[in-house]
């Protein structure tokens, strides 16, 4: 059992809610994924605008825990203020903390991330930090009060899969008891299965489902991959070898 700040999720698949062709397709994808969490955000809306309210009612109807994000924030101050606003709007102290440091790759700014995580933890937030697979950064985030880590697989929306297998393995091995989620960069279900086989506790997917030709079917495919990957991890995979080892016994083989 994996607990995220004391809560066991119904599924290890976390799903983003952006970029779907329609609200109906989003709702269908969330249901077919059996998502354990959905991520949400905050944006400007003019007076009289109904988009935010309609979205909020849709999300409430899905009855899935929400994880608000601080997407688009580039400074500690922006991220902290956005988190505080999200806590009031969504009624949760969970926050997916994003502080972007580089705009081509949307790479997290680990220095600002640690500082924002410390401020938010002291203010009672439960922080899910979107981070690089940096061991020292991870240590600092844990010291700042984070009890969950969310390393990237690859840049957001790139669909490249797990770019640094060695780094993700090392992170998992260094902090075996910390719940960890691979967030961002996953493109197809096999990437998600791979993250789960490495021992990650969950994955967070958005673009790979939302931008699929059939988002609801892809959501289901990801759900199956996450389950398969987790099952494989628990079953303890064999070790990789460089040379062939015959699987059929050689003893008793005829000499012809």
């Amino acid at each position: 059992m994996t607990l995220f700040y004391g809560t066991e999720l119904s599924s290890r698949l976390m799903l983003g809610t952006a970029q779907y062709p329609s609200p109906e397709i989003l709702a269908d994808a969330v249901r077919r994924a059996g998502a354990g969490v959905v991520t949400v955000s905050l944006r400007r809306e003019a007076a009289g605008g109904r988009a935010g309210q309609a979205f909020w009612e849709l999300i409430r109807g899905l009855d899935v825990p929400v994880l608000p994000n601080t997407a688009g924030c580039h400074t500690v101050r922006e991220a902290v203020t956005t988190a505080q606003m999200a806590r009031e709007v969504f009624g949760t102290d969970w926050i997916k903390l994003e502080v972007i440091g580089e705009s081509d790759t949307l790479q997290p700014d680990m220095f600002a991330l640690v500082e924002a995580a410390r401020i938010l933890t002291e203010d009672g937030f439960r922080v899910f930090p979107y981070m690089t697979e940096d061991l020292v950064g991870a240590e600092r985030l844990l010291r700042a009060g984070c009890e969950v880590l969310m390393p990237w697989g690859a840049p957001i929306g790139s669909g490249k899969g797990l770019n640094n297998l060695f780094g993700l393995r090392a992170l998992r091995a260094h902090f075996p008891d910390v719940p960890m989620v691979v967030d961002a960069g996953i493109g197809v279900p096999s990437h998600a299965a791979q993250a789960m086989e490495l021992g990650y506790d969950a994955v967070l997917i958005n673009t790979a489902v939302a931008k699929a030709g059939n988002p609801a079917e892809m959501a289901r495919a990801f759900a199956m991959a996450v389950e398969a990957g987790r099952m494989a991890y628990i079953a303890d995979p064999m070790e990789e070898r460089d040379m062939a080892v015959p699987s059929t016994p050689v003893i008793g083989q005829a000499v012809l």
Binding site: G16, T17, A18, Q19, Y20, L26, T39, V40, S41, L42, R43, R44, E45, G49, A51, G52, Q53, F55, W56, I59, P68, N69, A71, M85, V89, F90, I156, L204, N206, T207
Partner: peptide
């Protein structure tokens, strides 16, 4: 002044 509403997010 910033006035923000719920929105889709990843």
């Amino acid at each position: 002044v910033e006035i923000l509403a719920p929105m889709q997010g990843g």
